[in-house]
Nucleic acid binder design. Structure first.
Length: 426
RNA sequence: GGAGGCGUCGCCUAGUCUGGUCUAUGGCGCCCGCCUGCUAAGCGGGUUUGGGGCUACAACCCCAUCGAGGGUUCAAAUCCCUCCGCCUCCGCCA
């Protein structure tokens, strides 16, 4: 959630932020009204409660006849306190509910508008010119079949549409990519983590995925558990309800977990292949740091993502995602989109977000400043994809394919495949 | 899955049976100061978090906070219920 002080002191800033995302500002007025109602309710309850405490303290010391009198008084008061408390609780819930509807305030640098209003920051590498090379590239579905790497038919048979088996060199590719990602992360000082992919509502809600995105989340029947769509969820909740020494920041984690997405509302999109699936594995970077450091850290996360894509020798562009497409939590988001030859487009391979204090406020993750004053305040959280396995495989197969259907292995990946430099059709 | 035990303000801990003087004890750690060639020791003080009021977002006052949420009561760390977590034993299992 956003800082309530900003809402109170600079409501116009919040209104402007809503407009930038293409959302109504009406929520701001509802929030302000709920805030003042809440404060009134708190004051009422607290004065009643204080009175009750004062009277109650006199009872054990009172003489028998005074005691009767006091008991009668406090008994009546007890009912009023109870009522005032219920009113306070209701007012606080109302306020919290409204506050949680407000997305994080987009950064000034983030372009205004929706999905198509992104700004291209840079292009890295040049898409291969298959026409000049004189052959028609095969798509990853065909290549996956030729190489014995991806089995979509059996994926559908066993689990349904948007599922797959990675087999043979496909399975090896996943393990190679994950290990390479983990090695890079460790070298950069990250703590490697294998994270749970089933979480409680608190974790899901705290990261902002039970808002508008709730349709995309799998729930476990009969249990209070959700399947995560990214290890951002368990990693954000990892330090929930904790106070971290700011001297211990940044805390950098590289977490591996499967990711599950319903892909509701994407019927007809990317129906072929493994571009858009209900399950895939991912190595995600997750960082806790201070608000001041978060902006520079965001750039670092982007740099680490680029380093990984560079090692895969892919052509890609980096975009600055528009405000309306940031999701609830982020103030700014960079996507790295790799060139997919058979689609003739750039497709998202990785994404990094600065969520500032938004998730920390919801999950109660605070930092204590160094020194005698030791102020406690929310920390900033950031996340970034190191590798989303399925899309990385799509980009590698399509980009590095040869006319005969074999695929050249990028230099950096070879050590992770036992030195293999060419994947040949089976 | 079954039976039992436990959960106190960073860590350890007193308090729970017998509800009110608990405004939660003591130790360790940490912070500030004193003392001291320096360090250690010693001495004195401070040290949960969230919220509200008032304000300079200070000081101060108040409310809540003893795993979480309900209940009983004039009054709950203390009694009752539900949930969560940890531990022990049994069963099952990769």
């Amino acid at each position: 959630m956003i800082d309530p002080r900003i809402l109170r002191d600079e409501p116009d800033r919040v209104r402007a932020a809503q407009a930038k995302r293409g959302l109504s500002a009406e929520v701001v007025d509802r929030a302000l009204a709920a805030d003042s109602a809440r404060r009134t309710a708190i004051a009422t309850f607290e004065s009643k409660r204080a009175e009750q405490k004062t009277l109650g303290a006199q009872i054990p010391k009172a003489s028998p006849e005074e005691k009767q009198e006091l008991l009668a008084q406090t008994k009546a008061l007890a009912a009023e306190v109870k009522e005032a408390e219920a009113a306070r609780t209701a007012a606080e819930e109302e306020w919290n509910g409204i506050l949680k509807e407000i997305p994080n305030l987009a950064a000034d640098e983030a372009p205004a508008g929706g999905e198509d209003d992104f700004a291209v920051i840079e292009h890295v590498g040049t898409p291969r010119d298959f026409a000049a090379e004189g052959f028609e590239p095969r798509d990853h579905v065909e290549l996956g079949q030729l190489l014995g790497a991806i089995d979509l038919e059996r994926g559908a048979k066993v689990s349904g549409s948007r599922f797959y088996f990675l087999t043979g060199i496909g399975a090896q590719l996943e393990l190679a990519l994950v290990t390479m990602a983990m090695d890079q992360a460790r070298a950069a000082g990250f703590t490697q983590v294998i994270a749970p992919s089933l979480v409680r509502p608190r974790a899901m809600d705290g990261t902002g995925f039970l808002g508008q995105a709730a349709d995309d989340v799998y729930r476990i029947e009969g249990e209070d558990l959700y399947l995560v769509g990214t290890s951002e969820v368990p990693m954000a909740a990892y330090h929930s309800d904790e106070i971290l020494e700011e001297s211990s920041l940044p805390r950098r984690y590289a977490a591996f977990s499967p990711c599950f997405r319903k892909e509701a509302g994407s019927h007809g999109k990317d129906t072929k292949g493994i571009i858009r699936v209900h399950w895939f594995d991912k190595v995600e970077m997750f960082v806790y740091t201070t608000l001041e450091e978060s902006y520079a850290e965001h750039e670092r996360l982007l740099a680490w993502e680029k380093e990984f894509l560079d090692k895969l020798e892919l052509a890609y562009r980096v975009i600055d995602v528009a405000a309306g497409d940031l999701g609830l939590s982020a103030i700014r988001k960079f996507d790295c989109e790799a060139w997919i030859p058979t689609q003739g487009k750039y497709r998202e391979l990785t994404s990094t977000s600065n969520c500032t204090e938004f998730q920390s406020r919801r999950l109660d993750i605070r930092g204590r400043a160094a020194g005698a004053d030791g102020k406690v305040r929310p920390v900033a959280t950031l996340n970034g994809t190191l590798t989303a396995v399925t899309r990385a495989i799509v980009a590698i197969l399509e980009t590095h394919q040869q006319e005969d259907g074999s695929v050249r292995v990028p230099e950096a990946l070879r050590p992770y495949l036992g030195g293999l430099d060419l994947i040949k059709p089976v």
